[in-house]
Amino acid sequence: MADDHGGQRVSRRTALAGIGSIGLGALLAACGGDAGTPTAVTTTSGSTATITPRSTGTSGLEDLFAGANTCTLTETTTQGPYYFDADKVRSDIREDREGTPLRVAVKIQDGETCEPLSGAVVEIWHCDAGGLYSGAEAMSSGQGGPGGGGPGGDLEPADDKRYLRGAQVTGADGIVQFVTIWPGWYPGRTVHIHAMVHVGDARVLITQMMFDEDLNTKVFESRPYARRTGRDTFNDGDDIYRPSMLMKVTRRGGDYVGAIVFAADSDQDRT
């Protein structure tokens, strides 16, 4: 499906009129309506766009989740210091970042019924090959590790970069996918991708995705990752790491594809 790096076209949504992108707030409001019902929202440029939830663009992905389905609620983790609404509804989040190509496929299930959750908004964000986060490059520059924002708090962006951040909306199959790069590392943490799931106006899940260390080692032998040395924290030494956070990673067409299932409580209070 057509999609650009700036988020001006919305993967698995019909859009856009005018120039601009749909902010997460508008997207969440639109997702509160009936599935399949067109909803008019205002883009960041002031134009009007009509979006309709639909399940397209994820055919052929179900096999990635074979053996990974679970009805156990996915464990919530700390939000970390670098979250903010990046105002980027898109599947390709790479922008100008160099690194090993990685497709991330996430399936959202209802934690009680085990059925796919449609209309859920899934955000992911992670550091680049050098350990930097967009919107917080100065704070994540490696001076003693992550800083700023505070655990669990939303960040006020300190720069205008928005790479390696984006949101997608699940269709009837509960699946979203992103095109990104393999995350880098920074002191004090293992390699990870942050994820947040919204249902209606509630944040129903905040979690992280991680990788087999043999794969991390292999990827980091190549450029641009190999420019950095001194990685100090691995899965077995990371306070947040849990085996359930490991993505199932395969190779397709020479690229890495990682898949994971999240089971979320879709009925918690909307606060």
Rank of each mutant, 00 (worst) to 15 (best):
M210P: 11
A68D: 12
Y186N: 01
S21I: 03
P38T: 13
L215C: 11
R252C: 00
V249R: 04
G254L: 07
M139R: 13
D201S: 15
Q8W: 00
G111H: 05
M247H: 06
N235P: 09
L102C: 09
A68C: 12
E98D: 09
G111L: 05
T217L: 04
F178M: 10
F178Y: 13
G150Y: 01
V122C: 11
H194F: 11
I51Q: 06
R97M: 03
R162W: 05
P38H: 14
V41M: 12
G36L: 14
R223G: 13
G153T: 11
I93Y: 01
A172L: 06
H198F: 01
D214V: 15
E98T: 06
D173P: 00
D110M: 10
V197E: 04
A202V: 11
R189A: 02
V176K: 05
L215I: 15
D85H: 00
K107F: 00
N216C: 15
F262R: 06
G130Y: 09
A29Y: 15
D128N: 07
I240G: 09
G258V: 02
D87N: 09
H194P: 06
S118H: 13
L61N: 02
V169E: 05
H126I: 03
A15G: 15
D160S: 15
T70S: 15
V89G: 08
P151W: 01
A15C: 15
D212M: 03
R242M: 09
T37F: 14
G135F: 08
D267C: 04
R103H: 07
A226P: 09
S11G: 05
H194I: 10
T77Y: 03
G130E: 07
G60Y: 02
V249Q: 01
A49L: 10
R94N: 07
G119F: 03
I240D: 12
D34M: 10
